[in-house]
Amino acid sequence: MIEARITEKRRNLRDAYSSALISLGEKNENVVVLDADLALSTKTKRFGTVFPERFFDMGIAEATMMDVAAGLATCGKIVFASTFAVFATGRSYDSIRQSIAYPELNVKIVATHSGISVGGDGASHQMLEDMALMRALPNMRVIAPADATEMEDVVFKIAEADGPFYVRIGREDAPIIFESHGHFEIGKGYEIRKGKDVAIIATGTMTAEALRAYDILEKRGIEAMLIHMPSIKPIDEKLIRKAAKETGAIITCEEHTIIGGLGDAVAMAMHDEPVPLYRIGVNDVFGESGGARELMEKYGLTAENIAEKAEKMVNRKK
């Protein structure tokens, strides 16, 4: 079992992204980074400052950024293309589909500002269906890391693996959960707490909430199994089936619409041996302006809500 706990330390995943990019850039001169006028926000500008000749700002033209990324990839480049999740996927969907996923080119789309915790910008900028869009594309792999440590590992791993990836991270600083590097593997989930009453499967920002939910449940005498699932596609079917078998009840937690994301992926993985599944996510509505924490609370993306729903599921089993 890998060591996971909510530490006092917080670090922004975008900072982890840019550090990892620079380190990759030093090792491999084929690493090229594109952005679409959000390089200060996504933090790719730091790469651009160190390697100006390998950084291209495409201006406010996200769809074309994806086509350009594909063209670079055909010539042997390892291309990282970044902007906010809403523009990276929604605005650019056809470019990603036609020019990246279909020809299976070596483009890594790293999207920041995903989810409702974008906050004040409101629903126009709170991307809640990006995993659904990207999961639906053949050849596309989808990753949602939980903290800065894992984010660095993700960047290194996807750079080594040929072909397209979509990585989604949030805007906010996030607590460090993994103090040591090295666990992340594409397609693997991690059982970070053992339990037999109910399985909580969480991804991205929600893994920290799930860890807190575990503590709440423990105080109430409920032993939850806790799974961190950074790899949404491919997903760790074996681990999901094990969780279903050992607990008989599953809750999925994602800062994403309940349609098409982690919940659906988990349901698919246990299609032949299903157990009751409750999905925590944004319930098929657009978000709104507000503080990040306020929004997470209003839309039920909290440890307290996870614990409440988990307890109900455990009681229903009896």
């Binding site: 000749e53 390998r54 074309t64 086509d67 594909a70 063209g71 055909t74 470019s95 036609q98 020809p103």
Partner: peptide, 24 residues
């Protein structure tokens, strides 16, 4: 050299290839 079909993508891909030539 490039998969196409949905109109409007080829010139962007061409820009990427031309940039790669300059880089290399």
């Amino acid at each position: 050299d490039m998969s196409t079909g949905s109109l409007g993508h080829g010139l962007g891909a061409g820009v990427g290839m031309a940039l790669a030539a300059k880089l290399d």
